[in-house]
Amino acid sequence: MEIVFIGSGNIASHLAKAFHANGNIIRQIYSRTLAHAQTLARDVNAAPTDSLKHLVPDADLYIIAVADDAIPSVIRQLPKTLKGIVVHTSGATSLDILQEFQHFGVIYPPQSINKHIDTDFSKISFGVEANTEENLRLLFNTLKSIAPKTFACNSQQRLALHVAAVIANNFSNALFQMAYDILQHEQLDFELLKPIILETAHKVQYHPPYETQTGPARRGDYKVIDKHLEFLSQQPEERKIYQLLTDFIIKRYQK
């Protein structure tokens, strides 16, 4: 398959290299900054460009791998006569944003990807969506060659997956930082929490999170909860978050 990448950042870098290693031809790499396009293009034997008007018109697949807020601008500049399937990689952007093209779809990985850190696509699930069954089949088979856990989904499922990924990844990381700050304030090392963090992550690999919930809110231990809230009385934002999550857990397990 001949592929054009529109973008040279985190996901574009990993996908381009994976597809190239799997025998696909990477025709072009586009970036607003030519030097960035050139860097990735050298790795995958592709032609670099900083002009969307100069994209080859006859590739099999065009992958828009840019920030969500840049997708509409890129689409406006793309020739609508592109012959291949045009896809974006966003979890929260509509499939219909691409409807001016004849063939279009979405390939979305619910994963935080950094081009400077190795990524094993064999462990990542890609949600695939397309405007026709034939395009879905082509995208599914193309992705499955590098990411065996690829699955078909609709827009609502993809958005749900994106929301869930933000909660599980971004929100949990923010809570890790909150815990880090609390410990630092008392001259305690964050290393003390790493075993329980790893244990929690390990348990949800094998059990539904509902079954593995522990803690004072799960037990309905209001004396401990009150002590925690008093401890956080000088940190109103952290106290509010603690109270909201505590209330959420209590209501969930009182049903």
Rank of each mutant, 00 (worst) to 15 (best):
114 N>I: 06
231 F>A: 14
181 D>F: 15
194 K>N: 08
232 L>P: 11
197 I>T: 07
173 N>H: 03
211 E>I: 05
103 H>L: 03
229 L>I: 13
149 K>A: 13
194 K>I: 14
156 Q>D: 13
114 N>P: 01
163 V>D: 14
126 F>G: 11
220 G>M: 10
180 Y>R: 06
112 S>G: 01
132 T>R: 08
197 I>F: 12
105 G>T: 06
215 G>I: 06
112 S>H: 08
169 N>G: 03
140 F>H: 08
200 T>W: 02
240 K>H: 09
146 I>G: 10
104 F>E: 05
199 E>P: 00
203 K>L: 15
216 P>K: 02
233 S>G: 01
125 S>M: 06
206 Y>R: 08
115 K>V: 00
181 D>N: 13
156 Q>V: 13
242 Y>H: 10
216 P>A: 09
242 Y>T: 05
126 F>I: 07
164 A>C: 13
217 A>S: 12
227 K>D: 15
213 Q>F: 12
241 I>W: 02
241 I>K: 09
227 K>M: 14
238 E>L: 08
171 F>P: 09
195 P>I: 04
229 L>M: 11
193 L>H: 10
112 S>T: 15
227 K>I: 06
102 Q>Y: 03
175 L>I: 13
183 L>Q: 05
176 F>T: 05
189 D>S: 15
117 I>N: 10
193 L>Y: 09
151 F>M: 12
122 S>H: 15
220 G>K: 10
156 Q>T: 13
185 H>A: 15
234 Q>I: 00
202 H>T: 10
225 I>R: 06
172 S>V: 13
200 T>R: 14
231 F>R: 12
127 G>Y: 15
152 A>H: 04
159 L>F: 09
149 K>F: 04
133 E>W: 00
103 H>W: 04
135 N>P: 11
113 I>Y: 05
184 Q>K: 15
200 T>D: 03
178 M>W: 02
177 Q>E: 11
127 G>H: 13
150 T>R: 04
241 I>G: 08
203 K>A: 15
111 Q>H: 07
123 K>L: 14
219 R>H: 03
200 T>K: 14
147 A>C: 09
111 Q>S: 11
156 Q>F: 09
122 S>E: 05
120 D>P: 01
186 E>Q: 14
212 T>A: 10
236 P>I: 11
150 T>L: 08
158 R>S: 02
139 L>M: 09
167 I>L: 15
174 A>P: 00
182 I>M: 14
201 A>I: 00
196 I>A: 10
219 R>Y: 01
195 P>E: 01
143 L>P: 02
185 H>V: 00
162 H>R: 03
104 F>P: 08
216 P>I: 04
215 G>F: 03
197 I>W: 13
129 E>Q: 12
124 I>Y: 00
112 S>L: 12
158 R>E: 00
141 N>M: 08
148 P>C: 06
227 K>Q: 15
161 L>D: 07
146 I>C: 06
125 S>L: 06
115 K>Q: 05
127 G>I: 01
118 D>Q: 06
144 K>V: 02
235 Q>E: 11
126 F>M: 11
142 T>L: 06
172 S>P: 04
172 S>K: 03
103 H>Y: 04
180 Y>W: 07
121 F>L: 09
241 I>A: 07
181 D>R: 14
127 G>Q: 13
111 Q>E: 04
176 F>K: 12
228 H>D: 14
216 P>N: 05
136 L>Q: 12
228 H>K: 01
193 L>D: 01
194 K>Y: 10
172 S>R: 02
230 E>S: 07
216 P>Y: 04
134 E>W: 00
183 L>S: 05
179 A>L: 12
